[in-house]
Simulated scan of single mutants.
Amino acid sequence: MAKSVDANELKQHKSDESAWVVVDGKVYDVTDFLDDHPGGKKILLKNCGKDASEAFWTYHSEKILEKVAKDMEIGEFKDSAKL
């Protein structure tokens, strides 16, 4: 069963030590990817701790979710309200 993450928990994960991001209702732990992100760690951290779907889709395709992010998926975002 997938982990269910709420807004309060998500907001606690926006640093070098623990970086989580939501894309289309799924939560990804990108902590170990920060230094490898082609766009740089700074832009990734800017979008952590919140729903980054709009920013993600501006620069990425479905292929990225399938190939790179799939292994980083840790659960589902349970709050329906936008962060």
Rank of each mutant, 00 (worst) to 15 (best):
V30R: 00
D71M: 00
L83C: 10
C48S: 12
D6H: 01
K70H: 09
G75C: 06
A7Y: 04
K82H: 14
Y28I: 07
D51T: 01
H37P: 11
D71G: 13
E66R: 08
D36L: 14
T31R: 02
D16M: 10
G75S: 02
F56V: 02
V21P: 06
D32L: 13
A69V: 07
L83W: 13
G25Y: 07
D29H: 02
L83T: 15
D24K: 07
A69N: 03
P38A: 09
T31D: 12
I43G: 06
L34Y: 09
E17F: 06
D32M: 12
E62S: 08
G25A: 08
E9Q: 14
S53R: 04
K78Q: 14
V27A: 03
A69L: 15
I74K: 00
D24A: 08
L65W: 00
V30Q: 04
K11W: 01
K26C: 12
G25T: 09
L10G: 02
G25I: 08
D79K: 01
K82S: 15
G75L: 04
K63S: 12
P38W: 09
D79T: 08
G75F: 02
W20E: 04
H37G: 07
V5E: 03
A19L: 06
E17N: 15
V23H: 06
K78S: 15
G40H: 11
V27R: 03
L45G: 04
G40W: 10
E73D: 08
A55N: 07
V23Q: 04
D79I: 02
G75Y: 01
I64L: 10
V23F: 07
K3C: 00
V27C: 06
A7W: 05
K3V: 04
K46M: 13
K50S: 08
V68L: 02
K50T: 12
E76Y: 07
